[in-house]
Amino acid sequence: MNEPLSSSVPARKRRRAPAAAPDQPLAGQWCVGTVTEAESGALVVQSGSLRLPATRAASCLLAPAAGDSVACLRVAPRETWVLAVLQREEGVPQVLQCDGDTRLEVRGGTLALNAARIELRTEALDASARRTTLATDSADVVARQLSLVASRIKLVGALLSSVVDRVEHFSKNYLRHTDGMDKVSATHVEVQAQQLMRLEGEHALVNGRELVKARGAQIHFG
Protein backbone atom coordinates (compact mmCIF):
# COMPACT_ATOMS: atom_id res chain seq x y z
CA MET A 1 0.00 0.00 0.00
CA ASN A 2 1.33 3.43 -0.96
CA GLU A 3 2.21 5.87 1.85
CA PRO A 4 0.66 9.38 1.94
CA LEU A 5 2.50 11.98 -0.10
CA SER A 6 2.95 14.22 2.91
CA SER A 7 5.16 11.68 4.59
CA SER A 8 7.50 11.55 1.58
CA VAL A 9 8.06 15.36 1.49
CA PRO A 10 10.95 16.59 3.62
CA ALA A 11 9.98 18.71 6.60
CA ARG A 12 12.14 21.66 5.42
CA LYS A 13 10.18 21.89 2.16
CA ARG A 14 6.75 22.07 3.83
CA ARG A 15 5.13 25.50 3.70
CA ARG A 16 3.62 27.01 6.80
CA ALA A 17 0.44 29.14 6.63
CA PRO A 18 1.21 32.79 7.27
CA ALA A 19 0.20 34.00 10.75
CA ALA A 20 -2.78 36.40 10.86
CA ALA A 21 -1.74 40.00 11.38
CA PRO A 22 -2.96 41.46 14.70
CA ASP A 23 -5.69 44.12 14.54
CA GLN A 24 -4.25 47.61 14.42
CA PRO A 25 -6.08 50.76 15.64
CA LEU A 26 -6.53 53.70 13.33
CA ALA A 27 -3.59 56.04 13.58
CA GLY A 28 -4.06 59.64 14.70
CA GLN A 29 -1.83 62.69 14.99
CA TRP A 30 -2.02 65.27 17.76
CA CYS A 31 -1.44 68.91 17.07
CA VAL A 32 -1.95 72.30 18.71
CA GLY A 33 -3.17 75.33 16.82
CA THR A 34 -5.03 78.61 16.89
CA VAL A 35 -8.61 79.08 15.71
CA THR A 36 -8.65 81.67 12.94
CA GLU A 37 -12.28 81.29 11.88
CA ALA A 38 -15.30 80.21 13.91
CA GLU A 39 -18.50 81.19 12.14
CA SER A 40 -21.73 79.17 11.85
CA GLY A 41 -20.04 76.12 13.37
CA ALA A 42 -17.27 76.01 10.74
CA LEU A 43 -13.77 76.06 12.28
CA VAL A 44 -10.41 76.75 10.73
CA VAL A 45 -7.30 75.98 12.81
CA GLN A 46 -3.84 77.32 11.98
CA SER A 47 -1.17 74.89 13.16
CA GLY A 48 2.30 75.88 12.03
CA SER A 49 2.13 76.23 8.26
CA LEU A 50 -1.02 74.12 8.00
CA ARG A 51 -4.48 75.59 7.67
CA LEU A 52 -6.89 72.87 8.80
CA PRO A 53 -10.69 72.86 8.45
CA ALA A 54 -11.84 71.31 11.74
CA THR A 55 -14.93 70.06 13.52
CA ARG A 56 -15.69 70.50 17.21
CA ALA A 57 -15.83 67.15 19.01
CA ALA A 58 -18.96 66.28 20.97
CA SER A 59 -16.95 66.19 24.21
CA CYS A 60 -15.69 69.75 23.69
CA LEU A 61 -18.58 71.57 25.39
CA LEU A 62 -16.84 74.96 25.29
CA ALA A 63 -17.55 76.36 21.84
CA PRO A 64 -14.24 77.46 20.24
CA ALA A 65 -13.91 81.12 19.30
CA ALA A 66 -11.51 82.95 17.05
CA GLY A 67 -8.15 83.39 18.77
CA ASP A 68 -8.45 80.30 20.99
CA SER A 69 -5.55 77.89 21.41
CA VAL A 70 -6.96 74.40 20.87
CA ALA A 71 -5.83 70.78 20.99
CA CYS A 72 -6.66 68.84 17.80
CA LEU A 73 -6.55 65.28 16.59
CA ARG A 74 -6.00 64.51 12.88
CA VAL A 75 -7.29 61.10 11.85
CA ALA A 76 -7.18 61.69 8.10
CA PRO A 77 -5.61 64.22 5.80
CA ARG A 78 -8.88 66.15 5.66
CA GLU A 79 -10.42 65.22 9.02
CA THR A 80 -9.42 67.24 12.07
CA TRP A 81 -11.26 67.29 15.39
CA VAL A 82 -11.00 70.01 18.04
CA LEU A 83 -10.99 68.16 21.37
CA ALA A 84 -10.36 70.93 23.87
CA VAL A 85 -9.86 74.67 24.23
CA LEU A 86 -6.52 75.23 25.92
CA GLN A 87 -6.48 79.00 26.31
CA ARG A 88 -8.81 81.88 25.56
CA GLU A 89 -8.23 85.61 25.43
CA GLU A 90 -9.60 87.64 28.33
CA GLY A 91 -12.99 89.22 27.70
CA VAL A 92 -14.30 86.59 25.27
CA PRO A 93 -17.54 85.03 26.58
CA GLN A 94 -17.48 81.39 27.66
CA VAL A 95 -20.23 79.55 25.78
CA LEU A 96 -21.08 75.92 26.57
CA GLN A 97 -22.81 74.54 23.49
CA CYS A 98 -24.58 71.25 22.84
CA ASP A 99 -26.43 70.15 19.71
CA GLY A 100 -29.78 68.41 20.10
CA ASP A 101 -31.60 67.41 23.27
CA THR A 102 -29.37 67.76 26.33
CA ARG A 103 -29.91 66.66 29.92
CA LEU A 104 -27.77 67.39 32.96
CA GLU A 105 -28.19 64.59 35.49
CA VAL A 106 -26.77 64.42 39.02
CA ARG A 107 -27.26 61.19 40.96
CA GLY A 108 -27.12 61.11 44.73
CA GLY A 109 -25.94 64.70 45.09
CA THR A 110 -26.84 68.38 44.82
CA LEU A 111 -26.56 70.62 41.79
CA ALA A 112 -25.54 74.14 42.81
CA LEU A 113 -25.23 77.22 40.60
CA ASN A 114 -23.25 80.16 41.96
CA ALA A 115 -22.93 83.33 39.90
CA ALA A 116 -23.26 87.07 40.31
CA ARG A 117 -26.14 87.01 37.82
CA ILE A 118 -28.14 84.15 36.30
CA GLU A 119 -30.28 84.62 33.18
CA LEU A 120 -32.76 82.16 31.68
CA ARG A 121 -33.99 82.79 28.14
CA THR A 122 -36.26 80.25 26.51
CA GLU A 123 -39.49 79.92 24.57
CA ALA A 124 -41.02 77.70 27.28
CA LEU A 125 -39.98 76.97 30.86
CA ASP A 126 -41.29 73.88 32.68
CA ALA A 127 -40.37 73.31 36.34
CA SER A 128 -41.57 70.39 38.44
CA ALA A 129 -40.71 69.90 42.11
CA ARG A 130 -42.35 68.45 45.22
CA ARG A 131 -41.26 71.46 47.26
CA THR A 132 -40.05 74.91 46.19
CA THR A 133 -38.56 77.62 48.41
CA LEU A 134 -37.77 81.10 47.11
CA ALA A 135 -36.03 83.63 49.34
CA THR A 136 -35.26 87.08 47.97
CA ASP A 137 -35.14 90.71 49.09
CA SER A 138 -37.02 91.93 46.03
CA ALA A 139 -38.93 90.19 43.24
CA ASP A 140 -40.64 91.54 40.12
CA VAL A 141 -42.95 89.48 37.93
CA VAL A 142 -43.95 90.98 34.56
CA ALA A 143 -46.30 89.03 32.33
CA ARG A 144 -49.05 89.63 29.82
CA GLN A 145 -51.10 86.87 31.41
CA LEU A 146 -50.60 85.21 34.79
CA SER A 147 -52.59 82.21 36.03
CA LEU A 148 -52.21 80.82 39.55
CA VAL A 149 -53.94 77.56 40.46
CA ALA A 150 -53.58 76.13 43.97
CA SER A 151 -55.71 74.35 46.55
CA ARG A 152 -54.54 76.78 49.25
CA ILE A 153 -52.96 80.23 49.02
CA LYS A 154 -51.56 82.22 51.94
CA LEU A 155 -50.19 85.76 51.76
CA VAL A 156 -48.41 87.33 54.73
CA GLY A 157 -46.96 90.82 54.46
CA ALA A 158 -46.88 94.32 55.88
CA LEU A 159 -48.36 96.07 52.82
CA LEU A 160 -50.43 94.90 49.85
CA SER A 161 -50.91 97.31 46.97
CA SER A 162 -52.57 96.45 43.66
CA VAL A 163 -53.56 98.54 40.66
CA VAL A 164 -55.93 96.94 38.13
CA ASP A 165 -58.63 98.12 35.76
CA ARG A 166 -61.17 95.49 36.81
CA VAL A 167 -61.42 92.92 39.59
CA GLU A 168 -63.78 89.93 39.51
CA HIS A 169 -64.02 87.75 42.60
CA PHE A 170 -66.08 84.56 42.96
CA SER A 171 -66.15 82.47 46.14
CA LYS A 172 -68.53 80.29 48.15
CA ASN A 173 -67.63 81.94 51.44
CA TYR A 174 -65.79 85.22 51.95
CA LEU A 175 -64.64 86.29 55.41
CA ARG A 176 -62.66 89.47 56.01
CA HIS A 177 -61.34 90.75 59.34
CA THR A 178 -59.86 94.23 59.76
CA ASP A 179 -58.60 95.58 63.10
CA GLY A 180 -58.42 99.20 61.95
CA MET A 181 -60.41 101.18 59.42
CA ASP A 182 -62.08 99.55 56.42
CA LYS A 183 -62.97 102.23 53.89
CA VAL A 184 -64.47 101.99 50.42
CA SER A 185 -64.47 105.00 48.10
CA ALA A 186 -66.33 104.80 44.81
CA THR A 187 -68.67 106.74 42.54
CA HIS A 188 -71.38 104.10 42.97
CA VAL A 189 -71.56 101.44 45.71
CA GLU A 190 -74.13 98.67 45.46
CA VAL A 191 -74.60 95.77 47.90
CA GLN A 192 -77.07 92.97 47.12
CA ALA A 193 -78.14 89.99 49.25
CA GLN A 194 -80.61 87.29 48.25
CA GLN A 195 -81.81 86.55 51.81
CA LEU A 196 -80.36 88.78 54.53
CA MET A 197 -78.22 91.91 54.69
CA ARG A 198 -77.18 92.95 58.17
CA LEU A 199 -75.35 96.07 59.26
CA GLU A 200 -74.37 96.26 62.92
CA GLY A 201 -72.32 98.71 64.90
CA GLU A 202 -72.23 100.66 68.15
CA HIS A 203 -73.06 103.73 66.13
CA ALA A 204 -74.64 103.65 62.67
CA LEU A 205 -74.76 106.77 60.57
CA VAL A 206 -76.56 107.16 57.26
CA ASN A 207 -76.06 110.48 55.54
CA GLY A 208 -77.75 111.37 52.28
CA ARG A 209 -77.04 114.86 51.09
CA GLU A 210 -80.20 115.08 49.02
CA LEU A 211 -82.29 111.97 49.65
CA VAL A 212 -82.58 109.06 52.04
CA LYS A 213 -85.15 106.47 51.00
CA ALA A 214 -86.21 103.22 52.67
CA ARG A 215 -88.71 100.90 51.00
CA GLY A 216 -90.10 97.57 52.13
CA ALA A 217 -93.26 95.63 52.92
CA GLN A 218 -92.56 96.23 56.60
CA ILE A 219 -90.24 98.75 58.17
CA HIS A 220 -89.49 98.58 61.91
CA PHE A 221 -87.55 101.11 63.99
CA GLY A 222 -86.63 100.52 67.61
Rank of each mutant, 00 (worst) to 15 (best):
G216Y: 12
L175M: 04
A124G: 09
A116Y: 02
T187Y: 01
G216E: 10
S8E: 11
R78P: 00
L146T: 15
P10Y: 03
P25I: 12
R107I: 13
V44T: 14
S7T: 10
L159Q: 10
I219P: 00
D101M: 10
G109V: 03
A11T: 12
R166L: 10
V9C: 02
P22I: 06
T110G: 00
R152C: 04
S185T: 12
A58P: 00
F221D: 05
A186Y: 05
E168S: 13
L86D: 09
P53L: 07
H220D: 14
R78N: 14
T36H: 01
A71T: 04
L196M: 04
T34I: 14
V141G: 03
G48F: 10
D140M: 09
A214D: 09
F221A: 13
R15D: 08
E168D: 15
Q29V: 15
L160E: 06
E105C: 04
T110V: 09
A76Y: 01
E79Q: 13
R209I: 12
S161V: 10
A127T: 14
R107V: 15
C60S: 05
F221P: 00
E200W: 00
E190W: 03
L43G: 01
L50A: 08
S161I: 06
W30L: 14
L199G: 05
R15F: 08
M181A: 13
E119A: 13
D137Q: 12
D23T: 12
H177I: 10
E123S: 11
A11K: 09
V206E: 06
K213V: 11
E89G: 14
S47F: 06
L148D: 09
E79R: 09
T102M: 13
V167R: 02
L86N: 05
P22G: 05
K213A: 15
A84L: 07
V142M: 06
G67L: 10
W30E: 13
A186R: 01
A84Y: 03
R209P: 00
L113I: 13
D182C: 07
D126A: 15
L61Y: 05
G157Q: 01
V95P: 00
L111T: 05
C31Q: 05
N2P: 10
S171V: 13
L120E: 11
P93G: 05
V82F: 07
T132F: 08
S40Q: 14
E3K: 13
Q29F: 14
E39N: 02
S69N: 02
D140Q: 13
D137P: 01
P64I: 08
A11C: 02
T178S: 05
R117V: 12
A143H: 02
N173R: 06
M1S: 14
D182A: 15
E105H: 03
E119N: 11
Q46W: 04
A38W: 04
R176T: 08
P4F: 07
E200Y: 01
K13R: 11
S138G: 11
A20Q: 07
